[in-house]
Amino acid sequence: MEPPETTSTVTLRVNGVQHSLDLDHRTTVLDALREHLGLTGAKKGCDHAQCGACTVLVDGRRTNSCLLLAVAHDGAEVTTVEGLAEGDALHPLQAAFLERDGFQCGYCTPGQLCSALGMIAEAGAGAPSLVTPPAEAALSPAPVPLSPEEIRERMSGNLCRCGAYGNIVAAIEDVTR
């Protein structure tokens, strides 16, 4: 009997560019980005979805790329931090992080940016968080205003060992105001 295939051809559309890769099934989306496509913006912090440094958007939603097997996401649309700016024009979140000094060493920043981008969209679509007051009008969800408390709860999957949280929250607030 033939040994089973343990590699597959996987297609990922990353920041608008289509890539076809032959990957071992063990390859995560994070490793595909970093090791196979040279996109080292998304970071391998803990590699167990505990730190959020690997956060990217997959099909428009923020997720921990370290826990996604690339083969299971064949055909996915991935947005990484490298896809946020338009040429030399920074994304408003990037500009706000600079303006507010929302980092020290910068290691967690790509994950913070992608997470914030996804999070702002979630709140805009009316998705609740644990600190959102239960809406009487839950049947027609309105966008949830992003108070500092909401931002902190919704961004809790992104750790910052430098402790730049105060400025990260301020930067996100600037963009959502």
């Binding site: 979805a49 996804g118 968080s129 809790s156």
Partner: peptide
């Protein structure tokens, strides 16, 4: 879920992170 089973919505939101809950 939000309107009729608020305990369930709250319990799910109390778990993990936004990224993990999306997956």
């Amino acid at each position: 879920v939000r309107s009729r089973y608020p305990a369930l919505s709250q319990a799910v939101l109390a778990g993990a992170s936004g990224q993990i809950r999306n997956t």
